[in-house]
Design a protein around this nucleic acid. Structure first.
Length: 330
DNA sequence: AAGCGCCTCAACCGCGAAATG
DNA sequence: GCATTTCGCGGTTGAGGCGCT
């Protein structure tokens, strides 16, 4: 290869992104759509390399990203998929569309690997490092066995619950940004003097203002798409008499084929939109069109659920009872 | 209160793949 | 078919937060 790193240029800024930079980037992407990252720094005046811009968008600013604790179900999915696919974080992330590959990778490295290791060291049976399937079987049994306890815990963790009564923990990134922007605009109204930002700030606010958190959610029918919608959640829970803490479990259990496929499609279509022509991200386009578009995509382009998907869905539906069998195909 | 060490996660780096001319 | 450019992925790093002593 031998291609020089894109960030070696003089004057390229590194390190944490500032709110100002975030605004500029989001405004630009809102207008032009993700993609052509090469042009982003030039057109926005950001002193960042294209790669940094893309990363910031995909890992943090992209709408629909769920942040915060991983649910037991997500853990299970990750462990499953990691055992099946290896460290193909991007592939794994397509099954958890609200999570970025970076998040999943981090979570694996910082939490799950340790848990599995702990489990391995605690195991009476000597097992090789490659014998991960046995470990994740054990782990999953343990995880799902602990799930109720975890849900129970989440009741008591104000601010750390997993879509429980304090679901704002899972505020969408758009929500994060709007909130962040509000604070920033209040505190430093004159700092945003970048020409591009000045041009686009109004538009940004106008369009972002449209994106109330609930609109980033799907239909709210116990969805696996968990985002910031406290009112809806309250109503929903209240109406059905569901314990808020159990709502998480409810959400997990309500995984269905269409949703997972759609979710995977959502992400891939979002990603594919980076190639240019069509922008199908919720932030950038009309949600209904987006849904229909995805549906059409599913109908027309996607093969039926892959074996892996079906298997995972079966697992989620059945909530993993004890030891799970890995399909021999893998 | 200060110092220390551990943990987390946003961001960076380098490489390969895909796209383009 | 080849060279170059751009994108995306996976591994790694390091700043900052947090808990413990």
């Amino acid at each position: 290869m031998g291609r020089p790193p894109c960030c070696d240029k003089v004057g390229i800024k590194k390190g944490p992104w500032t709110p100002e930079e975030d605004i500029i980037l989001v405004s630009y992407i809102q207008e032009h759509g993700p993609g052509n990252w090469r042009a982003v720094p030039t057109n926005t005046g950001l002193m960042r390399c294209s790669k940094s811009c893309r990363l910031r968008w995909t890992n943090y600013l992209r709408p629909g990203i769920k942040r915060g604790n991983f649910t037991p179900h997500e853990e299970g999915m990750i462990i499953h998929l990691q055992a099946l696919l290896g460290n193909k974080w991007a592939a794994i992330a397509t099954y958890l569309p609200q999570r970025t590959d970076n998040d999943i990778k981090n979570y694996w490295n910082t939490h799950l690997k340790k848990k599995l290791k702990k489990l391995q060291s605690g195991s009476l049976q000597p097992q090789t490092a490659s014998d991960s399937t046995a470990h994740y079987h054990q782990f999953l049994s343990k995880s799902y066995g602990d799930q109720r306890a975890m849900n129970e815990n989440s009741k008591h963790q104000s601010g750390h619950g997993m879509l429980s009564e304090n679901s704002s923990v899972y505020a969408s990134s758009a929500e994060n940004i709007s909130r962040l922007l509000e604070g920033w605009m209040r505190s430093s109204p004159n700092t945003a003097n970048t020409s591009y930002m000045n041009e686009n700030r109004d538009r940004f606010y106008r369009d972002f203002g449209k994106i109330v958190p609930s609109e980033l959610c799907n239909d709210g029918s116990g969805s696996s798409v968990q985002c910031y919608r406290p009112q809806q959640l309250d109503q929903h829970d209240g109406a059905n008499g569901i314990n808020p803490a159990d709502h998480d479990l409810e959400c997990i259990l309500s995984f269905d084929d269409h949703k997972l496929t759609s979710m995977a499609c959502d992400k891939s279509s979002c990603d594919s939109s980076q190639k240019g022509s069509e922008s199908s991200c919720g932030l950038l386009d009309h949600h209904d069109d987006h849904d229909q578009h995805n549906k059409a995509k599913i109908d027309n382009n996607n093969p039926p659920l892959s074996f892996l998907e079906k298997w995972l869905l079966d697992e989620s539906a059945g909530q993993v009872e004890g030891v799970m069998e890995i399909p021999p195909i893998f």
